[in-house]
Computed example of a mutant assay.
Amino acid sequence: MSTFLSYLTVLALATLLLAPALYGLARDRRIDRRLREAADGRSGRTLRTAPQKSSSRSTVPSTATW
């Protein structure tokens, strides 16, 4: 029984150490896929954008420094 618990402990520690790395790898692959799709002009997914404000005045950037 002690051997089984040792294996289980090693498996749990390995999972805890590998989980963040595997999550980051999956995230990087997803971002790379979206960049390739954007470069090819395909739109595999619609991006959510903020609603546009309609204004008759043009926006001038602020030059004030504090």
Results as ranks from 00 to 15, higher is better:
1 M>I: 02
2 S>C: 02
4 F>P: 00
4 F>Y: 09
4 F>T: 09
6 S>A: 11
6 S>Y: 04
7 Y>W: 07
8 L>I: 03
8 L>D: 10
8 L>R: 12
9 T>S: 14
10 V>K: 06
10 V>Q: 11
10 V>T: 12
11 L>F: 11
11 L>D: 07
12 A>N: 07
12 A>M: 14
13 L>S: 00
13 L>C: 00
13 L>E: 00
15 T>N: 02
16 L>K: 03
16 L>W: 06
17 L>R: 05
17 L>E: 10
18 L>Q: 05
19 A>W: 05
21 A>N: 02
22 L>M: 06
22 L>V: 06
22 L>W: 04
23 Y>D: 11
24 G>W: 03
24 G>V: 00
25 L>V: 01
25 L>Y: 15
26 A>E: 09
29 R>V: 04
29 R>M: 07
30 R>L: 15
31 I>F: 13
31 I>N: 05
32 D>R: 04
34 R>S: 13
34 R>W: 12
34 R>A: 15
34 R>N: 13
35 L>S: 09
35 L>T: 12
35 L>F: 12
36 R>V: 14
37 E>M: 09
37 E>F: 03
37 E>R: 13
38 A>D: 01
38 A>F: 02
39 A>D: 12
40 D>K: 10
40 D>E: 12
40 D>G: 07
41 G>A: 09
42 R>W: 00
42 R>F: 01
43 S>R: 15
44 G>K: 11
44 G>H: 07
45 R>N: 12
48 R>G: 03
49 T>C: 04
51 P>Q: 09
51 P>C: 02
52 Q>P: 01
52 Q>W: 03
52 Q>L: 07
52 Q>A: 05
52 Q>S: 07
53 K>A: 04
54 S>W: 10
55 S>G: 05
55 S>Y: 00
56 S>P: 09
57 R>V: 12
57 R>D: 15
58 S>R: 14
58 S>Q: 13
58 S>V: 08
59 T>Y: 12
59 T>I: 07
59 T>F: 12
61 P>V: 10
61 P>D: 10
62 S>W: 01
64 A>Q: 09
64 A>H: 12
64 A>E: 02
65 T>G: 01
66 W>S: 10
66 W>N: 10
66 W>P: 15
